[in-house]
């Protein structure tokens, strides 16, 4: 008798909670968004400083010029696409090219729209310190890298030369490149960009040779001058199969992406973010303030905003 009642109760509960309608979990905002009536924009931040600079300036202007409340969420690029599609994040300000995700979300599901160019062109490559390149000019051609493998050795790379990679979230073909170009190198992941920068600075202080995955625009070049190693030339589609890549990285105009609903209904904030567009120098200026002068992102953004009124006024128009 009692069991029958409880079974009926359970069925009823199930009916109430699940049967009375569908719940689309891809259309849920963060529980912390829009608290207490404030208009909130949620921006995703990636772990590198350039991305922090974009977000810091956008956040500052949204809050001080447009009266929004801004939440930032640390998400790496690929999960950020997913979060963007679900509306948990409203905008992604710096994307380095994820064709697969673009196909899925922008073209197929139409939950994300392109927000235009960021204005910065990104390029990934392999770099050696300029002081080393000056001594050994031929190191800048990949064909000669094996000759120098011994000099690039570290405890972590064992018997091979070390090719230092950064955060696990970055776009990288390095493992495939090392194999396909038949290089006597071991890819060592520093775990984060900060760790990588720390390492690079320590190498530079001791004037030691190193080979690292790095990218432009990057403020670190001002501190530690580095020269790119030429990889086999990039041709359209040569990186289509991740396992067979044997060419350099492309030059990518960095893109902004917005959640489709936000782009439509986001009002002033969405218009502003679509117009947001600045130069490599601008980004580096803010990045340098954050990373080297140890200003908080907010202070750095304020400094930049105070001195570049003409630039950002256009974004608000």
């Amino acid at each position: 008798m009692r069991t029958r009642t409880s079974v009926m109760a359970a069925v009823a509960l199930l009916a109430v909670t699940t049967g009375c309608g569908a719940a689309d979990m891809t259309k849920q905002a963060s529980p912390f968004a829009n608290a207490r009536g404030a208009k909130t924009v949620t921006l995703s931040v990636q772990s590198w400083v350039g991305a922090q600079a974009n977000v810091a300036v956008a956040q500052y202007l949204l809050e001080h010029e447009l009266g929004y409340r801004v939440d930032t969420v640390q998400i790496d690029e690929v999960p950020a696409w997913d979060a963007l599609s679900q509306g948990r994040v409203d905008a992604l300000l710096e994307d380095w090219g994820h064709p697969e995700e673009e196909q899925r979300y922008v073209k197929d599901k139409k939950t994300i729209v392109n927000g235009g160019d960021l204005g910065v062109t990104g390029h990934i490559g392999w770099f050696v310190p300029t002081y080393f390149a000056k001594q050994h000019p031929d190191v800048t051609d990949w064909k000669n890298l094996n000759k120098y493998a011994d000099q690039f050795r570290t405890p972590e790379s064992g018997g091979k030369g070390q090719l230092m990679d950064g955060s696990p979230s970055y776009v990288t073909n390095d493992k495939a490149l090392v194999t396909n170009l038949d290089l006597n190198y071991q890819v060592v992941f520093a775990g984060s960009e900060a760790a990588q920068i720390t390492q690079i600075k320590q190498f530079a202080k001791a004037k030691k040779p190193f080979l690292t995955y790095w990218y432009t625009p990057q403020w670190l070049f001002k501190k530690v001058p580095m020269t790119e190693v030429k990889l086999p030339e990039y041709k359209e589609g040569c990186d289509a199969d991740p396992a067979k890549v044997a060419c350099a990285y492309p030059h990518t105009p960095l893109q902004k992406y917005l959640n489709a609903d936000f782009a439509k209904d986001g009002g002033a904030a969405a218009r502003f973010l679509k117009k947001f567009n600045w130069t490599t120098e601008d980004q580096n200026e803010v990045s340098l303030m954050i990373a080297e002068q140890k200003l908080s992102p907010e202070e750095a953004a304020k400094k930049w905003v105070d001195s570049h009124e003409s630039t950002w006024k256009q974004w608000l128009s």
Partner: peptide, 13 residues
Amino acid sequence: FLYFFGHISNGVV
């Protein structure tokens, strides 16, 4: 997802 996980997710949020 619509009728099961979605509701769990909704409830949590």
